[in-house]
Simulated assay, not measured.
Amino acid sequence: MKIAEVELRRVRLPLKAPFRTSFGSQSERDILLIQVTSDDGTRGWGECVALSAPLYSSEYVDGAHRVTRDFLLPRLWMLPDVTAYGLEAALTPISGHRMAKAGLEMAVLDAELRTRGTSLGEHLGAVKARVPSGVSVGIAESIPALLDVVAGHLDEGYSRIKLKIEPGWDIEPVSAVRERFGDILLQVDANAAYTMADATLLAKLDAFDLLLLEQPLPEEDIRGHAALATQLQTPICLDESITSARAAADAIAIGACKVVNIKSGRVGGLLEARRVHDVCAAHGVPVWCGGMLETGIGRAANMALAALPNFLLPGDTSASDRFWRRDLVTQPFVLRDGHVDVPTGPGLGVEMDEAWLDEVTVSKECHAAESL
């Protein structure tokens, strides 16, 4: 496949309600979308999940835009025949910038699979037609407000609740949710907000029979997570720390986690995400699919990934209307009986709502080999 043109498009999409975590509150998403067009006119879409500021990771959307334009695209043009695997190899010399690489890889993979008439799920090795859907609940203004939000999501049919926590907002809200809603599937996500000095506090979470405690310590503190794991009954899950299949293997080897959250953007793309899945499966470590407030483009990729066999826990694979009043795809993802369907069409299996996309577009630039 040859790529004739790449479009870098920035869209600004308002969230239905502000979403607050330990690294800030968001009321809208500034999103970098990548569209590749092959020489036969086949289009593929990718979504970069970098946030507006480098708080979840060192990447941020303005930086990802520049890296894609100035460093990734020139390597794309050098390829005589473009495939997702070939692109991955070509981008390896660029250090870091995994979210930027993942966005471009997704677009190329979408176009490549559309050309072949193959769905992303089939390509990755999906074994499920639909995946159980959990929902992530941000830090609320009060416990009564939190209980109302959780009640609403349970009424909608979500099969698992994840609560964001931070120092000062942890034991009490978790206790309130467990007391109010009984034996629901419940887990918590700290987004690296704690240190080993908080071990005694975090051990109090053992009383609530949680599925897991996600990323309590900083990203680099793998040894700290291993030490903390010996002091808790609640399984530790790693998110930010898992940046590759090798990182997953190292963390598992020293006992730093019993569960892994896989986000394709965080590890550099869907191909590496599948490797993380395979490493974890080989070691008997279950995985689940995390979310980054994706539109229907990234959400389609998440559904296909979450349909792999070792995704044994409900992921943050919520319906489109969890975050968006209007998604960017023509057929938004819908929750049915606690599950969301995996797309079966070629590539990502979704089509863009072109009119709405144009309405929320902030900027657009097109690049071809001759222009770089």
Rank of each mutant, 00 (worst) to 15 (best):
M1Y: 09
E7L: 02
L8D: 08
V11T: 09
P14F: 04
T21R: 12
S25R: 15
S25N: 14
E28N: 14
Q35H: 14
D40W: 12
D40G: 06
G41P: 08
C48K: 08
C48A: 08
V49F: 04
S52C: 14
D62K: 15
G63V: 11
R66G: 09
P80R: 14
D81C: 14
L87Q: 09
L87T: 03
E88V: 01
A90G: 06
L91W: 11
M99G: 08
A100G: 07
K101L: 07
E105N: 05
M106S: 03
M106L: 06
A107T: 10
D110A: 04
E112F: 05
T115R: 14
R116Y: 05
G117I: 04
S119H: 05
L120N: 02
K128M: 02
K128T: 01
A129I: 04
A129K: 06
A129M: 01
R130S: 02
V131R: 00
G134H: 03
V135A: 11
V137S: 09
G138M: 10
I139L: 06
P144Y: 06
L147C: 06
V150Y: 05
A151H: 11
E156W: 12
G157D: 04
Y158E: 10
I165N: 11
E166N: 10
I171P: 11
P173S: 09
E179T: 10
R180M: 09
I184C: 11
Q187I: 05
Q187T: 13
A192I: 08
A197E: 14
A203K: 15
A203I: 11
K204D: 11
A207W: 14
D209A: 12
D209P: 05
D209C: 07
L210G: 06
L211G: 10
L211P: 00
L213D: 03
P216G: 12
P216S: 14
E219W: 11
E220N: 07
E220C: 04
I222C: 12
H225I: 07
T230C: 12
Q231E: 15
Q233Y: 08
T234C: 11
C237F: 03
L238F: 09
E240I: 05
I242F: 03
R246T: 02
A247C: 08
A248V: 02
A248M: 04
A248R: 01
A248H: 07
A249M: 08
A251Q: 05
I252A: 07
A253K: 10
A253T: 13
I254D: 14
I254V: 13
G255C: 13
V259Q: 02
I262H: 02
E272D: 03
V276M: 02
G284P: 07
G284D: 14
G284H: 12
C289L: 01
C289D: 00
C289V: 05
L293S: 15
L293R: 15
T295C: 13
I297H: 13
I297Y: 05
R299M: 06
A300T: 09
A300P: 09
A307Y: 00
P314M: 00
P314C: 03
T317E: 03
R322P: 15
R325F: 13
D327C: 13
D327Q: 11
Q331S: 12
F333T: 13
V334F: 06
D337P: 00
P343H: 00
T344S: 02
T344Y: 01
G345D: 10
P346M: 09
V350H: 06
E351V: 12
D353L: 12
D353T: 03
D358Y: 08
D358A: 11
E359R: 09
S363I: 13
E365G: 06
C366S: 15
H367L: 07
A368T: 15
A369N: 11
